[in-house]
Design a protein around this nucleic acid. Structure first.
Lengths: 201, 201
DNA sequence: CCCCGATGTATCGATCCGATATAACGGTAG
DNA sequence: CTACCGTTATATCGGATCGATACATCGGGG
């Protein structure tokens, strides 16, 4: 859910699309579900829903080039002209800020269960924003994830028993590596859960 | 690339959509990029491209219910009637087999480089089919993947240095866990590469 | 001065996903 | 026997995402 990621970042400060994407990429690694082709439509959706609003078509928003006030006014004029002309691309920044209804939407999305259909990426995203969750919500998120991985693991094991011998070495290697990764994920989660409960106590 | 997965499975034996999905799910875990909403369109694409062909609208393809030849003929008739009526859903199996041009397409997709835009799932898929690759192709695949992960890792580290202190404990935990997972992936790859080179020698 | 690379917004087509509809079959409870 | 239910099976829809590409502006170096 890209919306959640966007709202979470805008919650801290108003940003424009390009910067948003950079932060997203470095926050979730390269597998963030963030590309311009999905980011800009998502921003439009959020804007249409009233969850975010454009705060300033601030042209480049950089310390004024100190050639007197004239420079600033010219830049502003140029921005207006570009905006009015329906410029199809270009460098004029569109800075978005979160609204109060966006804040609310963020809370809802963060706490949403989605009935175990929570993607791997969605979980990482939610955990990265766990600071905005109440302690009970954090534990809940971690426990749900843990249950999901445990189930996935037992299913993988049952499957491995059923098909032992039918697969070649490469397939088996992939499967086993996945199994190990899942096991490590689970023990990571258990550490986090323990830490969470320890801090509450 | 779902096409690659489908062709790889059909290479071993002719299958229908439902079975294809089951094998896909247990082959790549639950993150196989396989859902009916993408599987059936992919089959249609492959059929249109001549890479696969329907071999029999075999109704349930089960040992004939031993009531003489009549049972079989009735079933075949029912299947023909259903097929002609343009049935919108239902249980009539559509079994697909790979064609020689499909074999060729499979080789191409498996060996394709895609200029480092290879997804995590795509890599796992290709590795699972590495048996169909020449030894040099296997090493190439593994080395490419390793280079990709090494780059991802160094980027993540540079990023961590830059933003140290700006992130809360949850974000940092996610990031660090990702880093560890990537490191393990790399050492796994290095094992595979060593094994591959050892077996060649 | 002019081109190059980084910054920035935007869109297109293709693909993939989750939900849902449709339908036939096997078994079992009444 | 039938009425229902869970599994098997194909198919489609709308929406989300992706990768590629286009367009536009700015700063800096040759």
């Amino acid at each position: 859910m890209l919306e959640l990621a966007i709202l979470g970042l805008l919650k801290e400060q108003a940003l424009h699309g390009y910067e948003l994407k950079k932060r997203l990429s470095e926050m979730l690694g390269p597998f963030s579900g963030a590309s311009f082709g999905s980011l800009y439509p998502a921003l439009r959706r959020l804007e249409a829903a009233g969850a975010v609003e454009a705060v300033a078509s601030d042209p480049v928003a950089r310390p004024i080039p100190m050639t007197g006030s004239l420079g600033g006014e010219l830049a502003a004029f140029a921005a207006r002209r570009r905006s009015a002309a329906g410029a199809k691309g270009g460098r004029t920044r569109r800075v978005y800020a979160i609204t109060s209804s966006g804040q609310q939407l963020f809370e809802e999305l963060l706490a949403a269960d989605s009935g175990s259909t929570d993607d791997d990426r969605t979980f990482n995203l939610k955990l990265a924003f766990a600071r905005h969750l109440p302690p009970a919500g954090r534990v809940n998120l971690l426990e749900r994830r843990r249950a999901q991985l445990v189930q996935r693991l037992s299913q993988a094991r049952a499957n491995a028993r059923a098909r032992r011998g039918l697969l070649d070495a490469y397939s088996r290697s992939v499967l086993e590596h996945c199994r190990e990764t899942t096991e490590r994920d689970i023990s990571w989660l258990e550490q986090l859960i323990a830490a969470e409960k320890g801090s509450v106590k």
